[in-house]
Nucleic acid binder design. Structure first.
Lengths: 294, 294
DNA sequence: GCACTCTTGAAAGATATTTTCGGCTCGGTG
DNA sequence: CACCGAGCCGAAAATATCTTTCAAGAGTGC
């Protein structure tokens, strides 16, 4: 294999230039100097451009490349590109701070992504697989599954329901507290009721869960507060984790990420358990949707 | 400065290939595949050699390079050299296995979390901050903002709207295609319409965006296919990236994660720009919700 | 089955790189 | 001081590489 990308670092290149300097002519030295001092910049240049920048000719540039050990300028240029990339990746991004009002957009993107990644890691680490397994079994074997959630959690509830429907299970999401309770009354043993609330104390979702619980339905709570009021009516509790929140960044943002991961895990577990029916159902729903795209 | 060596990592390249795969032709796909699977090897090849290795023509190689966002093959090659160097110095960890039907639940959790983290990283790396900035400015200054999305994207649309409402902006989410169009007719210059569609070709959301676009509204598309039909009516395009999907894991899952990050970034940007009014509005909405928790 | 669009590679055209070659400088010498 | 020769240097020719064009072929919808 060609030795283009060898262990060369920027400083190694500089050293090479120094070593070879004595055997270099004046113009070659100018070229070598330019290359050593700004590898990234030079990588973007053609022979002609580099020749012009160093006030020399193409021939000299090529000669220099040869002297440095490359077959020609083309290869030197590739090596320089590699060097530049290494150099850049060396600089750690270091995202530690909060999002400030005057952060440039690029930082906002980086910070948000980083925070959400952190939230995912935390959630995965804290998730109790035994509880998850129990919830999975319950949903996989349920006649129907009702999911309660209001506000941002309502969207998570809908997300779960959409997915369950896709694999052929009966599922409903309720954001309206009154309708939720009215529907909860219909539930019985063998059904599953899931409440999603970050605070663990949202009355609007606790109430329907209580009703379901008292009627013998298997109940699951997905909450960020494992000791919250909602857990007293829950057979299984799945805990979401929360990132510290700042003024601009409401807790709802990271709790949503966390809730979605939990819900995804729940769904994947159910999909595994019901694979025989889930796979064809998924395929069928794709099929049905295909003609909606042009 | 030329953006050749941007935060691209080997996996980011792979993500890009996946994102663009749908808009690729068969031969272009072969080239992209070769490049993604062996950046170092391909960096050593000339157009002709790569064309031969992939059993295609030079023209196709160049076309592929263009599609991947480089001005030509020469630049793609430089980028590949950079990638190769990074890879060699960094030795990627690479935990890339699929979720299998018989995976224990703990593995499912780990894999899902890992995949979503990856998706976030890819999305952040690929997000065009200039486009984002333009979208932010538009929304921050809009009289009202309408967001279109159906299916899973509909939930993302609602998420965005919920957040915008919290900082005191006028925003509406539309999942019903008919109502969406009916409402789009009401829009005018100074308003903003946002379409969210992973495939980029969902007629139900393209139609209202078209109507809005033709009425002079500022339009934004959030899509996984930067070349999709939806972009022709979009003033600004925000690209989401896609993880490879497996049988059990529908694309909708990772596209949702990606879409949410984009939407969060958009929101944070708007919150920054409108800080004076956003902060008190946020506080007020907390206050109002407090009594719902016991 | 036909017309149409989209895909594709061959070859022409444009650019970049390498080689050639003669002028030039500079140090030494008569 | 004039002349000579060795080696450096760059202009331009030669070659390699990359890009564009174009027409034939594959695939697709009607």
């Amino acid at each position: 294999m060609k030795e283009i990308f060898g262990g060369a670092t920027a400083s190694a290149l500089a050293a090479k230039v120094r070593t070879l300097a004595p055997s270099m002519t004046r113009s070659m030295h100018r070229v070598a100097e330019a290359v050593a001092s700004d590898p990234a910049g030079c990588a973007a240049l053609t022979v002609t451009a580099l020749a012009e920048r160093t006030g020399t000719s193409e021939a000299t540039v090529v000669r220099t490349a040869r002297l440095l050990g490359y077959p020609g300028y083309r290869d030197l240029r590739l090596a320089l590109a590699g060097l530049a990339a290494q150099q850049q990746s060396g600089r750690a991004p270091a995202i530690t701070t909060d999002i400030a009002v005057d952060d440039p957009l690029a930082d906002v993107v980086a910070k948000l992504a980083h925070d959400e990644q952190q939230t995912l890691a935390d959630t995965a680490a804290a998730l109790d697989t035994a509880q998850l397994g129990a919830a999975v079994d319950a949903v996989a074997g349920a006649r129907r599954t009702d999911v309660y959630g209001v506000g941002a959690s309502g969207l998570v509830a809908q997300d779960l329901v959409q997915k369950l429907l896709r694999i052929g299970l009966m599922a409903h999401a309720h954001s309206d507290p009154h309708l939720a309770v009215t529907n909860a009354v219909q539930l019985r043993a063998g059904d599953v009721a899931i409440a999603i609330t970050h605070s663990g104390s949202t009355g609007d979702v606790i109430e329907p869960l209580r009703v379901a619980f008292e009627r013998g339905t298997t109940t699951v709570a997905i909450t960020g507060r494992p000791g919250g009021a909602v857990t007293q009516y829950a057979d299984h509790v799945l805990t979401t984790s929360t990132a510290r929140e700042s003024e601009l960044r409401p807790a709802a943002m990271s709790s949503r990420t966390s809730q979605l991961l939990v819900v995804d895990c729940l769904f994947m577990g159910v999909a595994q358990r019901t694979y025989e029916t889930a796979a064809p159902s998924l395929a069928a729903s794709y099929e049905a949707l295909a003609h909606r795209h042009r």
